[in-house]
C-alpha cells in the first residue's frame, strides 16, 4: 500500500506518547514515534532503550511514554538486553507458552553514544548472533544527555564540551565513524540510513522494511539536537533538509549487501549551508579558518562518491 502520511498518523495511534520530558524541539521524539508507527497495529513490540536522552526523558518513575513493553537496563547493552528478550520469545513460542497467532517485534533505541561507542560491542554481538530485531540509532552527534561531549559520531571540527574549539585545537580533529557501513560489514539483511524529512516517507518506509525483514536489521537516523548543535528549536526540519541536500547525511539502504541510494539531490548544496546555522561549527567561519570548511567539504564529497561507487558496484554484481 503506498504511503499516505495522513492515514498513517490518523489511523495508527502514537506508540510513543505525549507527556515525555525530552527538550522542546528535540529531533528524537518525531523519529521514534514514526518508526513505531511502522509496526502493524495488531503487533506487540518489546522495546529496549540504551541509557541516554530518550530513556531518561521517557520513563521517569512512575511515568512511561511507551505503550508497548519497554526495558531499559544500562548505557552499553540495549542490544544484548533485547537479544535476551528475543531469545526468550523464541524459546517460549517454541514451547507453546505464548499465543501462536500473535506476533511480537523487537526494537532497540540507542543514541550515538550508546551505539557507536560504549554499546558497539553489544550491538555487534547481537547482530552477529542473528536475533530477529531492529536496532535504531538516533544519532545526534554527541553525548547530549551528559552535556554535549564528543562521540565517535561527532562530525570533524565540531565544538563539544570535550572537544572544545580552543586556541590551539579547533574542535574535534577526527572524522566521524561510519557506523552504517560497519553494520553492512555484519552482512545483515537490511541496513539503512534515514532522517525525518518532508512527509517522513523515507523514515517510515525504511522502518517498515527494517522491522518486517527477518533477522537483525539496523537503522541509522540523524536526529538534530538544538541545544548541542546550537540552532533555534524551530529549525529542526530545515536543518534536516540541509543535512540531506548537502549530502552530509546521505539517505540509502543496503538490502542483502546491495546498496541503493534512496535520494540523490538534483543539485548538491555546499556543506557550509548545513554548517553555518549551527553554533558548534561557528569557529570554522572565522577568517583564516577557510581550510576547515574545505576539508569538511572534501570529506563529504569523498564519502558521497564512495557511496555512489558502492551502489554501482553492488548492483552490477547482482
Amino acid at each position: 500500500m503506498p504511503y499516505n502520511l495522513k492515514e498513517v498518523v490518523a489511523n495508527k495511534p502514537s506508540r510513543f506518547t505525549e507527556g515525555h520530558r525530552m527538550c522542546a524541539g528535540c529531533g528524537a521524539p518525531p523519529v521514534t514515534r514514526m518508526i513505531l508507527r511502522a509496526l502493524k497495529e495488531e503487533d506487540h513490540a518489546v522495546i529496549a532503550n540504551a541509557t541516554g536522552c530518550l530513556e531518561v526523558s521517557s520513563f521517569i518513575y512512575p511515568y512511561t511514554a511507551w505503550t508497548d513493553s519497554y526495558i531499559h537496563t544500562a548505557f552499553e547493552c540495549a542490544a544484548a538486553t533485547l537479544s535476551g528478550a528475543e531469545a526468550a520469545y523464541q524459546a517460549m513460542k517454541r514451547q507453546g507458552k505464548l499465543p501462536k497467532d500473535k506476533t511480537t517485534k523487537f526494537i532497540a533505541f540507542g543514541g550515538d553514544g550508546g551505539t557507536y561507542d560504549i554499546g558497539l560491542q553489544s550491538l555487534s554481538g547481537a547482530m552477529e548472533r542473528g536475533h530477529d530485531m531492529t536496532y535504531v540509532c538516533y544519532d545526534n552527534g554527541a553525548y547530549m544527555n551528559t552535556g554535549i561531549q564528543r562521540s565517535s559520531a561527532t562530525p570533524r571540527f565540531a565544538d563539544t564540551t570535550t572537544s572544545p574549539a580552543g586556541k590551539v585545537i579547533p574542535g574535534k580533529m577526527q572524522p566521524r565513524k561510519d557506523l552504517a557501513k560497519i553494520m553492512v560489514g555484519h552482512h545483515l539483511p537490511y541496513v539503512a540510513q534515514t532522517i525525518a524529512i518532508n512527509n517522513f516517507k523515507d523514515l517510515y518506509e525504511k522502518s517498515e522494511k527494517a522491522i518486517y525483514t527477518d533477522g537483525p536489521t539496523f537503522l541509522n537516523v540523524l536526529s538534530p539536537c538544538p541545544r548541542g548543535w546550537g540552532y533555534p528549536t524551530e529549525d529542526l526540519m530545515p536543518i534536516n533538509k540541509l543535512a540531506v541536500e548537502t549530502c552530509y547525511w546521505p539517505l540509502y539502504e543496503v538490502v542483502d549487501g546491495v546498496y541503493h541510494v534512496t535520494y540523490k539531490p538534483a543539485k548538491k548544496l555546499p556543506v557550509e549551508e548545513f554548517l553555518r546555522p549551527q553554533k558548534r561549527f561557528r569557529h570554522m567561519f572565522k577568517p583564516g579558518n577557510e581550510w576547515m570548511i574545505e576539508e569538511f567539504q572534501k570529506e563529504v564529497d569523498s564519502r558521497w562518491q564512495e557511496l555512489l561507487d558502492l551502489e554501482e558496484m553492488t548492483n552490477k554484481a547482482e
Partner: peptide
C-alpha cells in the same frame, strides 16, 4: 533441553541478555 542458548560476546552481555530474558517472562 528446550532452552535457547545465547552465545554472547562478553559476560556483560551475558547478564544483560539474562535480564532481558527474565524480564520477558522466561527463566534465565
Amino acid at each position: 533441553v528446550d532452552t535457547e542458548f545465547v552465545a554472547v560476546e562478553s559476560e556483560h552481555s551475558a547478564m544483560s541478555a539474562c535480564i532481558g530474558a527474565e524480564s520477558a517472562g522466561s527463566r534465565a
